[in-house]
Design a protein around this nucleic acid. Structure first.
Length: 457
RNA sequence: GUGGUUGUAGUUCAGUUGGUUAGAACGCCUGAUUGUGGUUCAGGAGGUCGUGGGUUCGAGUCCCAUCAUCCACCCCA
């Protein structure tokens, strides 16, 4: 055996069965996005590094895949650059990188096409993104995101619609045990002000985001380590332990944040989104207002969401939020947007774990034509043409081979029916249709076969 | 970037304190079966034990290095 080929770390092949399942997920998402008035957009796999760097924080910059310049990539670099280290050398040898998410390329697109877009602009985008992260369970270096964003409106109808879309997609997929956590960046700001930790917002957020993972004690410890005063930490405890219905939590927060403009704004946004949601006919929206939800991405400024499926080992499967000034970094400020994303790979894993893929998602060829000799194979070709014209997924075994082998092929490919053609069939015109599941056979003309297959669909 | 785990057939894994010719299951191929697959039975092919070095009379087994893998942390979908 020669050396085995391998895949780059954190990437995967998707075989036919996996693709069938993935496409099932993709089309469910796509259908819902389009139903809500979102239009498709695609952007290149690679972007100029100037577009990507500085948008995801220092960590994010580290995780960008950079693309070496074509040709002699050293031509712009000299020994001094090399001696100054990778940070100085990088811009000389790489000017492009693989995209890290879909939101930043979208912002770039909006800015570049600002004169042609009718606002508010609603787009969805389903494409792979790349992160040079270390892979682990549910985490890959190449994975697909399914984003839907609206830019150019502050309306909280958008937030409500996101909740509706999430509900609709998951219900299409058969996932019903999940919840949508919702919070607001301004509420988090308000809380830091209220507890006297103003300016420490990002440290506060990173810490409390881990509450359900590491518990209250460790969160408090981490907050202190991150430089939040013990008094402030102490004040945060009752807030982190808020219990009860959404209304009760909101009422409690209103009091706690009564001196914070930011906090008040956050609360009224959430209330308005919830009120809007009531106008739609949705019995159970599965929303859980959770003050400990923070989310990492720094550009969020308003409502934030995260979706978790219960009783599975996978982390969040969807998330998003409002960002007031994403296009600002590209020189176009004052444009508010809100968006969210489905993590298809994780949804796939969840559905696999819960065994939720329907059999119909796996349909393959419906009929295989099996033949005995050259004459019957030739006859089979005309049969094949008729089947396909009738819209029946069909194929003919392309070689002359033993019958056993041909049946075996049908079996392996999970093909439901076979048509056996030999000299008898050629002379009588009555073909043998075999149901591969039941093993039953009947002699029928091709027209009868087509009729039968179409009626059982 | 930090810590740990595991690398043996196509796949999942056994392999004793270091000891002759490295095994199993599943999968694959052939036949029983020249007009019938899934079941059964018989046979067969398939290994540089991740790679490189070291210890030893002798290494799949011990040591070092290296690469790969999976898991956790940081962070994230």
């Amino acid at each position: 055996m020669s050396q085995k080929p391998t895949l780059p770390k954190g990437t995967r092949d998707f075989g036919p069965q996996q693709m069938a399942k993935r496409n099932f997920v993709f089309s469910a998402i796509k259908e819902v996005f389009e139903k809500y008035g979102f239009m498709p957009l695609e952007t290149p796999a690679m972007e100029n590094l100037s577009v990507l760097t500085g948008k995801y924080g220092d960590e994010g910059d580290q995780l960008l895949f950079k693309i070496l310049n074509s040709g002699d990539f050293l031509s712009n670099a000299d020994v001094n650059d090399f001696n100054e280290g990778s940070r100085a050398l990088l811009p000389k040898i790489a000017e492009k990188g693989l995209k890290y998410d879909l939101t930043v390329p979208f912002a770039r697109y909006v800015v570049m096409n600002r004169h042609e877009l009718t606002l508010p602009f609603k787009r969805y985008q389903i494409q792979p993104v790349w992160r040079a992260d270390r892979p682990q369970k549910g985490r890959y270096r190449e994975f697909f995101q399914c984003d839907a964003d609206v830019v150019g409106t502050d309306s909280l109808i958008c937030e409500a619609e996101i909740v509706l879309m999430i509900n609709e997609v998951f219900s299409k997929l058969g996932i019903d045990d999940f919840n949508i956590k919702i919070n607001h960046r301004q509420i988090l700001t308000g809380i830091t002000e209220a507890i006297g930790a103003g300016g420490k917002e990002s440290d506060f957020c990173v810490s409390i985001d881990k509450l359900d993972k590491i518990g209250l004690e460790k969160v408090l410890e981490e907050m202190k380590e991150r430089g939040i005063s013990p008094e402030a930490t102490e004040k945060a405890v009752p807030i982190l332990q808020l219990q009860g219905s959404i209304e009760e939590k909101i009422a409690a927060l209103k009091d706690i944040l009564k001196n914070s403009d930011a906090g008040q704004k956050g609360i009224s946004d959430i209330e308005e989104a919830l009120t809007t949601l009531k106008s739609f006919d949705l019995s159970n929206h599965r929303i859980d207002f959770d003050v400990t939800l923070a989310r990492g991405l720094s550009y969020y400024t308003g409502a934030i969401f995260e979706v978790k499926v219960k009783n599975v080992s996978i982390g969040s499967v969807s998330g998003g939020g409002r960002y007031d000034d994403l296009t600002g970094v590209f020189g176009m400020s004052g444009l508010s947007g809100v968006g969210f994303s489905f993590g298809v790979d994780r949804i796939y894993d969840v559905m696999e774990e819960l065994n939720l893929f329907p059999k119909e998602a796996l349909t393959s060829t419906e009929v295989l034509i099996i033949h005995f000799d050259e004459a019957s194979m030739k006859y089979g070709l005309s049969v094949l043409g008729k089947l396909r014209r009738a819209g029946i997924k069909s194929e003919i075994y392309p070689d002359q081979a033993k019958i056993k082998k041909q049946f075996n092929y049908a079996d392996k490919k999970n093909i439901q029916h076979t048509i056996v053609i030999g000299s008898e069939e050629v002379s009588s015109g009555k073909l043998t249709l075999r149901n591969m599941v039941s093993g039953q056979e009947e002699k029928l003309t091709i027209e009868e076969i087509i009729h039968k297959l179409q009626s059982t669909k």
